[in-house]
Nucleic acid binder design. Structure first.
Length: 436
RNA sequence: GCGGAUGUAGCUCAGUUGGCAGAGCACCUGGUUGUGGCCCAGGGGGUCGGGAGUUCAAACCUCCUCAUUCGCCCCA
């Protein structure tokens, strides 16, 4: 029989990584909830058309990276490569604009892109998404950015850089694109990398984003979109920046910041880390005012962002910000097989009182069991064998002090209650059984 | 889609010019001990990722393949 393994780029998440994901989700609910965002859960599978129409038919994501297949009736379905499109579909389909002028959603879950896996990039990866629909004001952009930065701060992350730019709108972007093409076309193609020579015709704005030093040097004096946007776009961007400055949110204007998905316009932003490898983009987003209409809905503006949870987890793990796993209160060592039932029932009583811990089921030597108890870092080791069973007692050993006492089985609930209260008060004092 | 690296015990990894398959940690047994941590002695464990080739002889050399990983690309 051949060994089974996971699909390339798909992973099983055990603790502590899974714990980090829970932590991020809990923090997201708390922070985003505080801004009036409600959780929206959307399907993982959608009709392919949804993504090709929103993300852009010419993008790499749509052309090369989607998990697309036909269902049993021959309809083309796609595992979502990102969340925004599905949220737009849900918004339109449920007539959300009729119920409230502004709708704010957050959502998280797995996304799928057929890419070559590497650090911070999986084929099944997880994103945390926020979308604000119905507000065209620059204050909405600023609030979204402030919320994202606050969320990252609440996760305990530092060393992140916020980059912002404006991409112009349908009115002014074509003119800029032309100006840029003209500039790039005048360059000696030999001085650009192979990829950029291709981009000249496919997506000239991406040339600005190239990391090859030669290309960077060549585009040093390229026309900047900031200088080519229309009056409305400029005022909008200035208003966003004004709030960031008032709040003293550190940020850098990056004229080269362009987004890979077609639907973005005006404000665009990205949060990058330099400490987690080549895939340093931790979060990215921007405004997408035409998208809802483009998908057949009303003309409703929108702005949002997505966070890469695997990338956040890399940073959390690295800094060990992770909060941790609670140490158990007890470990029950079973000295004789005949005492196992009693031990199990005692453990159940302890847990119902609020304590946590495990029972040893195996008939191993006491030495081995004590080693287990020690390894589990339980506060107390309870021991029960034939002798204890006979006089209805249990031996309770304080693992820290080494003290041990024999208490009646019948009063184990009382003992647990005292212990549980003790733990509560320790938690209140901040010296609880939580390690950092 | 393109490039580099890696794959040997449960884990982390050594393994010289091709010559008996190794260490540390973990696990188990015994000793010591204030019934656990430290220490001592012993033990179980391996398709050397898989397949083919070269050779008297391959973990080591060649080819193929699978997997992992880091980059490019792309993106969060």
């Amino acid at each position: 029989m051949s060994k089974l393994h996971t699909i390339k780029g798909f992973a099983d998440l055990f603790s502590p990584e899974s714990t980090l994901f829970t932590f991020m989700e809990d923090t997201a609910r708390r922070v985003f909830g505080g801004y009036g965002y409600s959780e929206l859960r959307i399907p993982i599978l959608e009709y392919t058309e949804l993504f090709s129409r929103s993300i852009g038919a010419e993008t790499d994501v749509v052309q090369k990276e989607m998990y697309t297949f036909a269902d049993r009736k021959g309809r083309s379905l796609t595992m979502r490569p990102e969340a925004t499109a599905g949220i737009m579909r849900a918004y339109i389909e449920n007539n959300c604009q009729a119920r409230e002028s502004v709708s704010k959603f957050f959502s998280f879950g797995p996304m799928f892109r057929y890419e070559r896996p590497q650090k911070g990039r999986m084929r099944q990866f997880h994103q945390l998404d926020c979308e604000c629909l119905g507000a065209h004001e620059p204050q909405a952009d600023a609030e979204v950015i402030l919320m994202l930065m606050f969320f990252l701060q609440e996760l305990g992350l530092t060393g992140l850089a916020l980059e912002v730019n404006t991409l112009g709108c349908r009115e002014c972007r074509p003119a800029y694109r032309e100006a840029l093409s003209a500039f790039l076309g005048a360059l000696d193609p030999e001085t650009l990398c192979e990829d950029c020579r291709r981009r000249l015709s496919t997506n000239p704005m991406r040339v600005l984003d190239c990391k090859v030093p030669g290309c960077k040097a060549q585009t040093e004096n390229a026309p900047r979109i900031r200088d080519h946007v229309c009056k409305d776009c400029d005022e909008h961007f200035v208003a966003v920046l004004r709030i960031l400055e008032q709040r003293q949110v550190p940020h850098v204007l990056n004229p080269r910041l362009v987004r890979g998905l077609d639907y973005y316009m005006r404000t665009t932003f990205e949060v990058v880390s330099t400490s987690i490898g080549a895939q340093g983009s931790v979060a990215g987003g921007g405004r997408y005012d035409g998208l809802v209409q483009q998908l057949g809905g009303p003309d409703v503006p929108g702005i949002g962002f997505a966070c890469g949870m695997e990338r956040l987890a890399l940073m959390l793990g690295e800094k060990q910000t992770a909060h941790a796993l609670q140490k158990p209160d007890f470990y029950i060592a079973v000295l004789d097989a005949g005492a196992t039932d009693t031990a199990l029932l005692a453990a159940q009583t302890l847990r119902e009182t609020g304590l946590s811990g495990e029972v040893s089921f195996s008939e191993r030597s006491l030495k081995s069991q004590m080693r287990q108890a020690s390894k589990s870092e339980a506060a107390y080791c309870l021991m029960i064998g034939e002798a204890e069973l006979a006089d209805r007692t249990v031996v309770v050993k304080n693992m820290e002090s080494g003290e041990q006492v024999s208490i009646p089985l019948a009063s184990i609930g009382d003992w647990a209650e005292i212990r549980a209260e003790d733990r509560q008060s320790r938690l209140r004092k901040g010296a609880g059984p939580v390690n950092g």
